[in-house]
């Protein structure tokens, strides 16, 4: 044998063997609601008795534990590490390890941290594992495309022209790379949604649903009882039924 081997990639397939679907919640721009949608969709799926995992891959600004009100503490360690289970959701986040500290990572370090977590996290049997993606089509997106052959993407967009343009680029790349997509989800709808419908049609992807701009959302973050009463949750609960 010639070169030294990083053993971690060889463990991933078995770690995810019990997971039926892996869906990356993406959409290229930041601040369009990926984390809120991934977390709330996970909650809706869990409420519908689906076995759901949520993996926060925005290592430099993890948010899902904030949306779902999950305390940060080290995961249990056994033959690997166990995600926290909160409100029926199996959640893994770098926030459980980093405390309050910022986590400044270059691309190679981001990839390495991802490999480590994929190699040691015990997801068990899940119907859906949602990946809350960082913004953009950078290291993490390319890594999960390379490492997870069963990956599908769900793209989040809104009506803004800057967002539409960027979601269109993301959709084109996924199509070119033959990465399956669940469809495009419109968030923060204020208008008639025509622009997103046209976008979805243009890139030949399903238009999944429209989530209204919900001024009650901010007050509900961190409290799942309140989150369940939001329009965001109601819209995503309908979508969850189709999963």
């Amino acid at each position: 044998m010639g070169d030294a081997l990083d053993p971690r990639p060889f463990a991933i397939e078995q770690r995810l063997a019990g997971v039926r679907r892996v869906i990356g919640v993406s959409g290229s721009k930041g601040g369009i609601g990926k984390s809120v949608i991934a977390s709330t969709l996970a909650l809706a799926l869990a409420d519908q008795d689906r076995r759901v995992g949520l993996f926060d891959l925005d290592f430099t600004s993890p948010s899902d534990h904030v949306v779902l009100g999950v305390d940060r503490s080290f995961p249990a360690e056994e033959f690997g590490i166990d995600p926290h289970v909160a409100h029926g959701i199996h959640l893994m986040s770098v926030a459980f390890f980093a405390g309050d500290a910022a986590v400044p990572l270059r691309g190679a370090a981001t990839t390495s941290a991802l490999l480590e977590l994929l190699a040691i996290t015990r997801w068990g049997d899940l119907d859906v594992l949602l990946l809350d993606m960082p913004p953009g089509l950078g290291d993490t997106s390319l890594d999960v495309i390379n490492l997870l052959p069963r990956l599908e993407f769900l793209l989040v967009g809104n009506e803004s022209r800057v967002v539409i343009e960027s979601v269109r680029r993301a959709a084109a790349l996924l199509t070119e790379l033959n990465v399956p997509t669940v469809g495009i989800l419109e968030n923060m709808r204020r208008g008639d949604g025509e622009a997103i419908r046209a976008l979805a049609e243009g890139v030949a992807m399903p238009y999944l649903a429209a989530i209204p701009f919900d001024s009650a959302l901010e007050a509900a973050l961190g409290d799942v009882e309140l989150l369940r009463k939001t329009d965001v949750y109601r819209s995503l609960a309908r979508l969850a039924e189709s999963f």
């Binding site: 053993p7 971690r8 056994e78 590490i81 190699a119």
Partner: peptide, 18 residues
């Protein structure tokens, strides 16, 4: 003991190398 998970990964890599 999350070392066991890493040890298991080493074995899988070794099998591939073999």
């Amino acid at each position: 003991m999350h070392e066991l998970a890493l040890a298991d990964a080493v074995m899988k890599a070794a099998l591939r190398a073999a």
